[in-house]
Amino acid sequence: MSEITIGIDIGSGAVKTVLFRGEQWLAKRVERIRRRDPLELARQGFDEVLEEAKLKEKDVSYTATTGEGENVKFATGHFYSMTTHARGGVYLNPEARAVVDIGALNGRAIYIDERGKVLSYKMTSQCASGSGQFLENIARYLGVAVEEIGTLSKTSKNPEKVSSICAVLAETDVINMVSRAIATPDILKGIHISMASRLVKLLKVTGITKGTVLLTGGLALDAGLLAALQEELVNEKISGLTAVSHPDSIHAGAIGAALWGAFRHRKLAELQSRAAA
């Protein structure tokens, strides 16, 4: 019987937890942090996936964390998030040759091969006006639920671009837009475009030229962002790339962690049996 592994991805916006039996995915949870303690939410997610899979803690062979999960006490091991997103990305979509992960603070573009090997990657640095956190703040300000952002953005006719690089000043830009009666969809689309443009830049820097790009992370299901990304790829004449999402994209990091956890577990078991022999 295959081993049970749990992957926990602690992002700055949400905590994602999955449970696997070998390559078989049995349970998942996602909990937005919204001013709560991520470590408690990690424990909560852990308990809940076990409950869903009707398993006990002692059945778990390996609990792997990723993201900001280095301090989870009950974890067996930790993997770096680009390693896990790459693996999780290929699991979700075997065609994927790049994974773009838009977290609350940082965006990452990871160029991978068909086995999920990371070929190169690029992460955003400093100044986060193009981040998920920023989009979420603005959406809250505009009274738009996170799930609606995409739908609204896609109706935009005249997107209004955000010029400031500093997120705080960009907030003011947006407030100014509202006072100038710019429509909500145009504001959201404007933010989507500036995010997409950053992501395309990251992708280009990784050196990928063709193949499927899978969006992962919290914003992967934002249809507006996906649309903006596709448009940017066309604008930038990088026609060899196709951006797609997956209903479970948000879990990519956690999935990768669980799968790598299984890999390490087998390795450790092997070492142990060798030591015993």
């Binding site: 443009s197 395309v200 830049k201 280009k204 820097v205 930038e236």
Partner: peptide
């Protein structure tokens, strides 16, 4: 400028 930044 954006193009150059995308070029690394």
């Amino acid at each position: 400028i954006m193009d150059a930044e995308r070029d690394g």
